[in-house]
Amino acid sequence: SLNIVTVTLNMERHHFLGISIVGQSNDRGDGGIYIGSIMKGGAVAADGRIEPGDMLLQVNDVNFENMSNDDAVRVLREIVSQTGPISLTVAKC
């Protein structure tokens, strides 16, 4: 069973999320979106629970499971540009 973790980040303390995301597209185009790298000083690094290779399932109320990489990057950028905490739900691989 997948270990699902939801992390809520206070964006007032850390001014950027600090992750890159990578799409693992397979033949069907539904390989999922994964955490690529984590930048020091960002909210994700400070929290420490999300790691490279984790699968990104949801951000706030947006489901990322069947999203293309381009869409995921765009949607994540829109969410980060808003104010307030950000909740990331990942599956630990």
Rank of each mutant, 00 (worst) to 15 (best):
D71A: 07
D47N: 15
A72S: 05
V80W: 15
D61G: 09
D54S: 01
V59H: 00
D71R: 14
G32R: 09
V73I: 10
L56V: 08
V59D: 00
N26I: 08
L57Y: 06
T6K: 08
V7L: 05
I79R: 08
V22S: 14
Q58L: 12
L88F: 05
I79T: 06
R74N: 13
I79V: 05
S87V: 07
V75W: 04
Q58E: 13
L76M: 07
M55K: 05
G32A: 11
G29V: 13
V59A: 05
V80C: 15
G29N: 14
D70F: 04
I86S: 01
M11K: 07
V22M: 14
T83Q: 06
S1K: 13
I79M: 09
E65L: 02
E78P: 05
D54Y: 00
D71E: 13
L9Q: 00
I21M: 13
V62W: 12
L57M: 13
R13E: 12
D71Y: 07
G23I: 02
N63A: 09
L88Q: 01
E65M: 12
S81C: 08
N60Q: 14
R77L: 02
K92W: 02
M67N: 05
L57A: 02
D71W: 06
L17P: 04
S87R: 12
M11C: 09
A91N: 15
V80M: 13
P85Y: 05
D61Y: 04
E12Q: 05
V59S: 01
M11Q: 02
D61K: 10
N66H: 13
G29F: 08
N60P: 00
G29L: 13
S1Y: 13
G29D: 15
L17F: 02
G32M: 04
L17I: 13
S81T: 11
C93D: 11
S1A: 04
R74A: 10
N60E: 05
D30K: 11
G29Y: 11
T6S: 13
N3H: 02
D30M: 12
E65H: 12
V59W: 00
S1M: 08
S68T: 12
Q82R: 11
M67I: 06
R77A: 08
A72M: 02
S81V: 11
N69T: 13
L2V: 04
S81M: 10
I4N: 06
S1H: 03
R13Q: 07
G31K: 15
V62K: 11
C93G: 15
L56Q: 00
V73N: 15
I86M: 07
N69Q: 13
V62Y: 09
I21F: 10
L9I: 11
Q82D: 11
G23A: 06
S81D: 09
G84P: 08
A72R: 02
I4W: 04
E78M: 03
V73T: 13
D54G: 01
R74K: 09
I86H: 09
A91S: 14
D70P: 12
M67W: 05
L9T: 03
